[in-house]
Each structure stands twice: as structure tokens, then as C-alpha cells.
């Protein structure tokens, strides 16, 4: 049996430190061309995977025509997906490894600079997936996308830009799974924005200093205070900022929301107020996309997991089971239906 690449290694602490710094001030690192800035790529065994057929075959000796692309959230890297296999406690596994074993998706893990604007990361992801499909040694027949937290918003933006430019890969996307993604914004991000504004506005040198430090947080963090925004008309003009709109849902794919709850009862007031600790459960139904047709989110494709905090959503055997069940239940579904 092929050892799942996702389960084979533990991401070293230095990579974690780099990812956390990228989440905090990644836009600054990018602007300064600092060596700590992460360039978006698919990662395999803590190294970027070159996008040419031979390198892909070396990393994945038994590739399949169905791909599963996993995108982490703010300040994380692909190590967030790794957890201890409940069936074999001495071994690590991941959603990617489980989906590789059954039903046979080839898992690919994205690492990126999560401090950049979400829309910018969406653009880069769209380009990365286009390059992947072109370099992949087999014809790609199906893609599923799994995004944790901010990763889900990056996927939404990527699908928008790919659809806008009629990229071939977007037609292969069948399902998109959003794990704790703040589609309507994260209250903590909004709160930090308000706190920074108030601190800067107070006429006191100390509060202004604290507010200025607060405002150093990355554009990626700032973007989390509301729904993900994309440029309405393709790439922005260098001279004038392009008008923005809420990132529309990809209408040709099925969208699944997985949300966590700190308490036992998803209807409990504490759960409603705190959600999974960082992100609240989506409204039912979620915010309709602006002018792009009916809301593609249906109740049957929303699952809430009690006693599951935000980070655990990316590494929970029950969540993994739910994803596999959804994949199996709707096997062979050709479109967004």
C-alpha cells in the first residue's frame, strides 16, 4: 500500500514559526521581499513541489485522475491537517491521506503567505491550480477543494478568478468543503479593527502607540472582518482601484459548510455567541451571493460538530468521516445540482 504523503512527516517548528510570522505581517514581508515570506506552492514533505510531471511522479508514484487540494488557514501551514490516526495511534494521518485511501483522491497540500490579501492569495491559487493541471502526469477528471478557515475564503476567490478567466481546472471542481470559514466575517477580526480605530483616535500618545502597533497586523487578518471581496472586473488597474464585490460562489460545484461549536448543544446561547471560539456558525441560509443567482448552500450540506474548536476542525476524525460520507453519498454527481 502506498504510504500517504500527508501522514509521513511532521512539519518542523521553524516552518510553523515562519507561517505564524507570515500570518501576522506577511504583506510587509512580501513588500520588503524578506526571505521569510512564503511563496505559494504545493508542499510535499515540508518542501515545495516543482510543477513538472517528473517531480509530481516522484512525490506521488501512484497518481490518480482525481485531485484533492487542501488549503490551510491564517498563520498555519499544511501541518495543520496532520493528526494521530485513531485506528493506528502510533501513526499520523490527515484528511488528504484518508481521501487517498478511499475513494482514491491524490492529496495536494498548499502552503501560502496568509498575511497577503485574501483576494491576492485567491489569484495566486487560481494560477497555481492552472499550472498543476497542466503539469499533472494524468488528465484531471475531478477536483475537490478543502479549505480550513481563511483557506475556504481563498478558495472562493480562486474559483471566482478562474471562472472569470475561464481556466480549464475550474470546470473539474465538483465539491468544495469549507471548514470553519468566516464567510460573513470573523467577529474577533472586526473587534480588533474597532479597537485599533478607537486607540488611534484617542488623543493620547500611549493609546496611539498601541493602536499603531495593532494596525501593523497583516492585510490577511484585516480582510477577515467581512465577507471575502474580489475585484469585480478582473485584475485591478494599477492607476485606479477596481470596484469590489463579495466573492460569488462557484455555481458549478457543490458547497459544504462544516462548523464547530465549543459546547455540546449547537443551539445553546454560548455556542451561538462564541461559535467554535473564533468563527460563528453561518446564518441559515447563508448570505446570498450578490447578483449571481440563488444561494448554493443548502441545509443538508451544513454540518455542525459539537465540542470541536476552530483548529480541531482541520484534524478531527469525525469531520473526516463526514467529508468521506458526503463524497460517497453524492459519488458521480456531475454538477452543482
Amino acid at each position: 500500500m502506498v504510504r500517504p504523503p500527508a501522514a509521513s512527516g511532521v512539519t518542523p517548528w521553524t516552518s510553523w514559526a515562519q507561517s505564524i510570522v507570515n500570518g501576522a505581517v506577511g504583506d510587509y514581508l512580501h513588500a520588503r521581499q524578506n526571505g521569510l515570506g512564503i511563496t505559494m506552492a504545493l508542499y510535499h514533505h515540508d518542501r515545495p513541489l516543482p510543477l513538472h510531471p517528473q517531480a509530481i511522479l516522484e512525490a506521488y508514484p501512484h497518481p490518480t485522475t482525481r485531485l484533492c487540494v487542501l488549503v490551510h488557514g491564517l498563520g498555519c501551514n499544511e501541518g495543520i491537517w496532520t493528526y494521530r490516526d485513531p485506528a493506528r495511534p502510533t501513526e499520523a494521518t490527515s484528511y488528504g491521506a484518508a481521501l487517498q485511501a478511499d475513494p482514491g483522491y491524490t492529496p495536494l497540500f498548499v502552503r501560502y503567505n496568509s498575511g497577503l490579501a485574501i483576494a491576492e492569495n485567491g489569484r495566486q491559487l487560481a494560477a497555481l491550480l492552472a499550472a498543476l493541471v497542466e503539469a499533472y502526469p494524468l488528465p484531471v477528471t475531478e477536483i475537490i477543494l478543502i479549505g480550513h478557515s481563511m483557506g475556504g475564503l481563498v478558495i472562493r476567490c480562486a474559483c471566482h478568478y478562474a471562472a472569470q478567466h475561464q481556466a480549464p481546472w475550474v470546470g473539474q471542481v465538483r465539491r468544495v468543503f469549507y471548514l470553519g470559514s468566516p464567510h460573513d466575517g470573523a467577529p474577533l477580526a472586526l473587534l480588533s479593527h474597532i479597537a485599533a480605530e478607537v486607540l488611534v483616535a484617542v488623543p493620547n500618545p500611549i493609546t496611539k502607540l498601541i493602536g499603531d502597533i495593532f494596525n501593523l497586523r497583516s492585510q490577511g487578518i484585516k480582510d477577515l472582518r467581512g465577507a471575502p471581496l474580489v475585484d469585480a472586473h478582473g485584475h485591478p488597474d494599477a492607476e485606479a482601484p477596481a470596484p469590489q464585490q463579495v466573492a460569488p460562489w462557484l455555481m458549478t460545484a457543490r458547497h459544504y459548510l462544516i462548523v464547530g461549536a465549543l459546547g455540546d448543544d449547537p443551539q445553546h446561547l454560548a455556542t451561538i455567541l462564541l461559535g467554535d471560539g473564533l468563527v460563528l456558525a453561518p446564518r441559515m441560509p447563508t448570505t446570498p451571493p450578490d447578483g449571481v443567482g440563488p444561494d448554493p448552500i443548502v441545509r443538508e450540506r451544513i454540518a455542525c460538530f459539537p465540542r470541536t474548536d476552530h483548529l480541531r476542525l482541520a484534524r478531527d476524525p469525525a469531520v473526516c468521516q463526514q467529508i468521506r460520507r458526503w463524497c460517497a453519498d453524492e459519488e458521480g454527481v456531475p454538477d452543482g445540482g
Binding site: 521553524t14 526571505g35 515570506g37 500618545p205
Partner: peptide
């Protein structure tokens, strides 16, 4: 090596920005 240099650059940038901001606040007080 590139990452180490980046970390060192980030540290000096942070010290520079922090000292500048603290100096400004200090002088205002």
C-alpha cells in the same frame, strides 16, 4: 540561509519601527 537573513532583517526592522514609535510617544508625553 535566506530565511535566517529574512528573520534578522525582520528583527532589525521591528527594532527600528518600535524605537521610532516609542520615541515619538515619549517626546509627545
Amino acid at each position: 540561509l535566506r530565511q535566517l537573513r529574512g528573520a534578522a532583517e525582520l528583527a532589525t526592522d521591528a527594532v527600528g519601527a518600535a524605537v521610532g514609535a516609542i520615541a515619538e510617544a515619549h517626546l509627545a508625553i
